[in-house]
């Protein structure tokens, strides 16, 4: 009983394409994603990350050289 009511309400026969789109049932490999613009504070964050990685790598090299 409920099932019939639900099917009428949803009416996917007419809105199938919308259902597919709303539910994200697309092949996202075929939908291009634009590259982010690296500027302002994002640029600073990336430089900070580079410096952090460099410091950590130096510390790791020193740390491991002391183990062996």
């Amino acid at each position: 009983m409920n099932e019939n009511k639900i099917i009428k309400k949803v009416n996917l026969d007419e809105d199938w394409e919308e259902f597919i789109k709303n539910e994200g049932l697309l092949d996202y490999n075929k939908i291009p994603l634009k590259r982010a613009k690296i500027r302002g504070w994002i640029k600073i964050a990336f430089w900070f990350l580079r410096i952090y990685i460099l410091i950590m790598v130096i510390m790791v090299i020193i740390g491991f050289s002391r183990i062996h």
């Binding site: 949803v10 996917l12 259902f19 597919i20 539910e23 049932l25």
Partner: peptide, 9 residues
């Protein structure tokens, strides 16, 4: 889509 159809309903 089968799973999402169930969620949709």
């Amino acid at each position: 889509a089968v799973d999402r159809l169930k969620v949709h309903l």
